[in-house]
Amino acid sequence: MLIDDNTIDLKINSKIIGITKLFDDIILCQSGEEAIAYFLANEKDTEKLPHLILLDIQMPEMDGFEFLDNYKLLPEELKDNTRIAMLSSTLDFGDIRRAEANPYVIKLLKKPLYPAQLQAVFTTCFIVKE
């Protein structure tokens, strides 16, 4: 799942994800609200929930960190199979620290996204575990 208010970045990053051939399906959300709604709508259908979320930080209304606060409140069983990486162009030290400090965030990826970075995240999340 990609969460980003910027449609151009959604397009670019979904192409990059496509190139890596690591994921079967990409869910695009233009806001944190939309992503939360998606989780709630598929409460019964956990198959449809994403394994990995790439979350932008700077978004109008609900920003990346606010999304995480809301995500925290979701029932545990919805979050079981999901990992979150933040994806941002930020250079702000505060943002970087906050992202690293958040227990749900496994990694802060920097834009532009490279297939190799995604591959690395994929390996740590889904291969080492098994």
Binding site: D9, I12, K15, I16, I19, S89, T90, K111, P112
Partner: peptide, 17 residues
């Protein structure tokens, strides 16, 4: 760090693609 750089990074992303 956000407004000015974000679109630029998009451009770099497009070039990478």
């Amino acid at each position: 760090s956000h407004e000015l750089r974000a679109p630029l990074v998009s451009v770099i992303g497009i070039v990478n693609l």
